[in-house]
Computed example of a mutant assay.
Amino acid sequence: MSEAPLAAIRSLPSWLLGRAAARGRSLVADALAVEGAKMWSHVVLSAVRDLAPVAQADLGRAVGLDPKDLVGVLNDLQSAGLVLREPDPNDRRKNAVSLTASGERLLERCEKAAREANDALLAPLTPAERGQFTALLVRISGRDR
Rank of each mutant, 00 (worst) to 15 (best):
I9H: 10
I9G: 00
I9R: 03
L12M: 12
W15A: 04
W15C: 02
W15D: 08
L16Y: 14
L16R: 13
L17Y: 15
L17K: 14
R19K: 13
R19T: 10
A20F: 10
A20S: 06
A20L: 11
A21K: 07
S26H: 12
V28W: 08
V28P: 00
D30T: 02
D30R: 12
L32M: 04
A33H: 00
E35V: 03
G36K: 08
K38S: 12
K38E: 14
S41P: 00
S41M: 09
S41V: 02
V43H: 08
V43R: 09
V43N: 07
V44C: 07
L45W: 05
L45T: 07
L45D: 11
S46F: 05
S46E: 06
A47H: 10
V48D: 04
V48I: 04
L51N: 01
L51W: 12
Q56M: 13
L59H: 00
G60P: 05
G64S: 08
L65M: 14
P67C: 12
K68S: 07
V71R: 07
G72I: 00
G72C: 00
V73K: 04
L74C: 06
N75W: 11
D76I: 08
D76M: 06
Q78Y: 14
Q78M: 14
Q78V: 06
Q78F: 14
S79I: 07
S79F: 09
A80Y: 05
A80N: 11
L82M: 03
V83H: 15
N90W: 00
D91E: 02
R92A: 15
N95Q: 15
A96S: 12
A96R: 05
V97S: 12
S98N: 15
S98H: 02
A101Y: 01
A101I: 11
G103M: 10
E104M: 03
E104L: 04
E104R: 00
R105M: 05
R105G: 07
L107S: 07
L107F: 08
E108T: 09
R109Y: 02
R109I: 06
E111P: 11
K112F: 01
A113Y: 10
A113N: 04
A113C: 06
A113E: 02
A114E: 13
A114H: 00
E116D: 13
N118Y: 11
D119P: 05
A120F: 01
L121Q: 04
L121A: 08
L122D: 04
L122V: 09
A123D: 10
P124A: 09
L125H: 10
L125R: 08
T126N: 06
T126H: 09
P127Q: 06
P127N: 07
A128E: 04
A128V: 14
R130W: 00
R130I: 15
Q132V: 12
F133P: 05
A135Y: 09
L136D: 13
L137W: 15
L137T: 08
I140M: 15
I140L: 15
I140T: 14
